[in-house]
Design a protein around this nucleic acid. Structure first.
Lengths: 340, 340
DNA sequence: CTGAAAGCGCTTACAG
DNA sequence: CTGAAAGCGCTTACAG
């Protein structure tokens, strides 16, 4: 007995009016279509009484709209993206949109499949954390005039909206802070990916060094692939520490920072006395670790709110203006970077 | 120029056959409907060439199926639920289902709205982390023969499938371990909610005490509301520590454990020398904190895999057998509970 | 102020 | 072995 679904026709028949009229009233077009108050009231009353629910599929088929946003993140189980997702969901709901989430795991093939899936599902708009080599697919979306906003990183050269944190300045500030504490031999742990957010963080690191006449040492930079990072990174970091004996390390993402702490712990080294550290992103671990971990906190709420607002604006207007927004990150100084 | 969508009729016309035939072939019913190989091949070839994509809405309208699962968690930004979501998504995809996530924030009103929303969206099945007083709505789903599987907690008395961790035994083991280390004045920090998973953990705590002739002290139990926990819990825990001076604390969830560490830190107390602790759930912070935090790890992968398998089975069979599964948790002993 | 009718793109019982 | 036709539940241009 799957629900005795009430349709517009049921209401129309019971009231002796046409389904057109019912549809108009139920869609708030009473004024516009000049339906009499009396008829309108009888329709809304009966609809309420019968607990009428529009059929989403039928409406979608007819209008081509699904009132659904596709959100493609890198990894929903990562603190940063999980928070983004939560705020996006809440914000989208305000505009009457639902969110279909998925994770790329930083895998271009998976990203393409997800994009395809979301198109097939006919989402009205896309929020995408792009992987590498996704330019063609994104261009295609733009050609088709589908609303798209990128998040966390952008694809240089593509005329597409995005909302990101100021990765360059964030990294620059963190490294500047380490230099200010007196460290000079500063290592950088990042991913193998050449995505923009990573590039900018890398540039910020190098710029801070060069602004203080510290020569850039490629041997102090460790690049770790996303896939398998959780298991491989701690070992790689241990090796870096042993071979290069840096005084301080800056980690380009929260999970790299977490892996770094793990590696440092395994070596029995002390933070900050034997190695000072700082990381991109905020995390409970960074906040409550002893000592606290200095970090660059991204404005998660602000990013998520803006990304939804921009997307909704694009979905509502015909011509989509391109909005590119870079939000400031915040340096949070804690014990892990103190000069002892 | 939103995509020049190819429909079944386009293919049929170009080939001079009926859309019926095209539909049969594309749905793999060639044999069953005895379509000639020649026709079938021409259809599949042309469909590929034109990059035919079925219209999801039209199919859904016709069949009443959306190939979508609704997943209602408590809080997608919580480590436990974020991981569950990730595994559920991956597993569901194997069966050709997409997942629509949402968070209740442990708010019954929001949960009801979400349920309503998902029904309206016509998801084919539901995975639900129920809030309090959701019995009526869940019963209704069952009456309508909608596939439902609960997760993390169940609703006593309702004939509905669920997959949960063995909360009682998990808590029992943790407290037993604390007792084994020589602690006797053991506090318990839980939520105000009377949901089953919390009840079971509470029972496990009490049982372990009573099995060792330690009298249960209500003053050692602190109950914190979910909403605002992040800001209120640390203070409450500090008060408990100051007033009752327990030797050890057991936290009923990961976020309570995290708040506990924060409170302990603020008081300048040392773990485990001034207060020993253990917590339900695993977390990066627990793993890498110094000392490590003893915890009860739930079998997240297993829970998520089973919940999808059970739901898919229910969606595929007419009569839904009720499957209730309780999976063992694992005690991970770390420095935070050591007797010094 | 209101209605008859077409059509969105599928699936499927029925007929031959 | 294949097709004509109905219908899922809406929305909307058109007509009056």
């Amino acid at each position: 007995m799957p629900p005795k679904k009430i349709s517009i026709r049921d209401i129309a028949r019971q009231l002796g009016v046409s389904s057109t009229t019912v549809s108009f009233v139920l869609n708030g077009k009473q004024k516009e279509k000049r339906i009499s108050d009396k008829v309108a009231k009888s329709v809304t009353d009966l609809a309420r009484k019968l607990k009428y629910e529009p059929n989403h599929m039928a409406r979608g088929l007819r209008t081509g709209k699904t009132k659904t946003i596709g959100l493609i993140v890198e990894d929903i189980s990562n603190h940063f993206f999980a928070h983004i997702a939560k705020v996006v969901e809440r914000r989208a709901l305000k505009y009457g949109y639902r969110v279909l989430y998925c994770s790329t795991e930083d895998n271009a093939k998976k990203a393409k499949e997800l994009l395809h899936m979301l198109k097939y599902r006919q989402v009205d708009g896309f929020i995408i954390t792009p992987t590498a080599s996704l330019e063609k697919e994104i261009s295609l979306l733009l050609d088709e005039h589908r609303p798209v906003v990128l998040i966390d990183r952008y694809l240089p050269g593509l005329p597409v909206s995005y909302v990101i944190a100021d990765n360059f300045t964030g990294a620059y500030q963190a490294v500047l802070h380490l230099i200010g504490e007196g460290y000079r031999k500063i290592g950088f742990v990042t991913t193998t990916s050449s995505q923009m957010q990573m590039k900018s963080r890398f540039e910020g690191y190098k710029q801070a060094l060069s602004d203080h006449r510290i020569s850039y040492e490629p041997a102090l930079v460790l690049k770790i692939p996303f896939s398998g990072a959780r298991s491989n990174a701690p070992g790689g970091i241990m090796e870096l520490l042993n071979k290069q004996t840096p005084e301080a390390l800056f980690f380009a993402t929260n999970y790299l920072g977490i892996c770094g702490i793990e590696g440092i712990k395994k070596l029995g080294m002390k933070i900050p006395s034997s190695i000072a550290i700082a990381s991109f992103d905020e995390h409970d671990l960074f906040r409550l670790h002893d000592p606290g971990i200095t970090c660059i906190a991204q404005p998660i709420e602000e990013i998520a709110r803006n990304v939804v607002d921009i997307l909704v604006a694009e979905m509502q207007s015909e011509k989509s203006p391109v909005t590119q927004m870079i939000l400031p990150s915040q340096l949070i100084i804690r014990g892990s970077s103190e000069r002892k």
